[in-house]
Design a protein around this nucleic acid. Structure first.
Length: 331
DNA sequence: GAGCCACAGCGCCTTCTCTC
DNA sequence: GAGAGAAGGCGCTGTGGCTC
């Protein structure tokens, strides 16, 4: 199916709904408020110019089975209060995002309990980049476009890592957008040659000789010296859009065994499209998952996307434009 | 084009933890 | 201690890229 056909198919019967597989249905997971906030933002995108309120989201959660009716009437009043507080907390988080992202935030908040997308004419490229990251973190809602979103997320991360490092540093894509070719072993040898590092042949021998993909490394960046000693500041990066991104945190460590970095250990980093900054407490949500890693999440990626023109290079841009202009019947 | 591999999502099952 | 929900493990499926 071509991209155009996918667009037509998707927008002919559009429906935004939390699926059981997201792990967000059942009872509300209060430690995943940031994921629910993403969902509210997505619903708002499809509301086509109308405010989405706390009450709208409460009704929606009831319809989707996230919020259940209590068996006893006596428990229902307490349950209603809990549900109201839960959704209000989501909107409180959204309000924090408005402060955190400033002009890059593509939504307007009114009275702390209503959200709407900015007027289409007022949306900047940086606002649209925010949408791209939001949709990339909502793959379960946009399953049909998963290949485009994940591939282009890696492209955005490539640009962000380039901007993060000094001008004369080197950044390579080793994942879906790679310029390296051949089997995984061939690609790793090419990379080792560029880095001027020795290879641990025994470790490399553990890789399937028919495997072609990157073995957990999506991006690599390093800062060059003019000498030829492979004692470098090296960044090994993994990009992940899936809800369980934290399970991929250690994948780049394989390269500690493949390469002999002389007298130095590379820095392992993770790029995720999620907005996981807890603005008030100055920590990450799910911070227990990210030990010993530098995380580039939605805010940091957006900040590092200094040239928002990169949005115009995205195939997904057409999808995003259609989303902004779409109206979901259920809202 | 077939076959292989990697990735991400999904569903089922088991185990663990918490609440009553 | 029982029951419910959460968490983790495992295998399957669909998709896409690559080699042969």
């Amino acid at each position: 199916m071509s991209f155009e056909e996918k667009l037509d198919s998707y927008f002919s019967k559009i429906s935004i709904q939390l699926k059981e597989s997201t792990g967000l249905t059942g009872n509300p997971a209060k430690h995943l408020l940031h994921i629910y906030a993403d969902y509210v933002e997505v619903v708002s995108v499809f509301s086509n110019g109308t405010y989405i309120s706390v009450t709208d989201i409460l009704d929606r959660f009831k319809d989707e089975g996230l919020i259940h009716q209590k068996e006893k009437d006596s428990d229902q009043a307490e349950g209603n209060d809990e549900n109201q507080t839960f959704v209000e907390n989501i909107f409180r988080l959204i309000l924090e995002r408005e402060q955190l992202y400033g002009n890059d935030y593509p939504f307007l908040i009114r009275d702390s309990n209503k959200i709407i997308v900015k007027e289409i004419a007022e949306l900047t490229l940086r606002n649209k980049l925010y949408f791209f990251l939001l949709f990339s973190s909502s793959l379960s809602l946009f399953n049909l476009f998963q290949p485009e979103l994940t591939k282009e997320f890696e492209f955005i991360c490539f640009k962000a890592l380039k901007n993060f490092l000094p001008n004369d540093s080197e950044v390579r894509s080793f994942g879906k957008n790679t310029t390296y070719s051949g089997t995984a072993i061939t690609k790793i040898r090419q990379l080792a040659s560029e880095l001027n590092v020795d290879i641990d042949e025994r470790a490399l021998d553990q890789i399937s000789h028919r495997g072609t993909q990157e073995r957990g490394l999506d991006l690599i960046g390093w800062i060059r010296f003019t000498d030829n000693v492979p004692n470098l500041l090296t960044i090994l990066a993994q990009c992940a859009c899936g809800k369980e991104w934290y399970q991929k945190l250690r994948e780049t460590e394989r390269y500690n065994r493949y390469f002999d970095f002389h007298c130095s250990k590379p820095i392992h980093v993770m790029f995720v499209p999620y907005s996981i900054i807890d603005y008030n407490r100055s920590i990450f949500y799910q911070n227990d998952e990210c030990n010993d890693r530098i995380i580039f999440e939605r805010k940091r990626i957006l900040d590092l996307s200094k040239n928002a023109e990169v949005y115009n290079e995205l195939i997904s841009g057409e999808f995003i434009e259609r989303c902004i202009n779409a109206r979901e019947d259920l809202v």
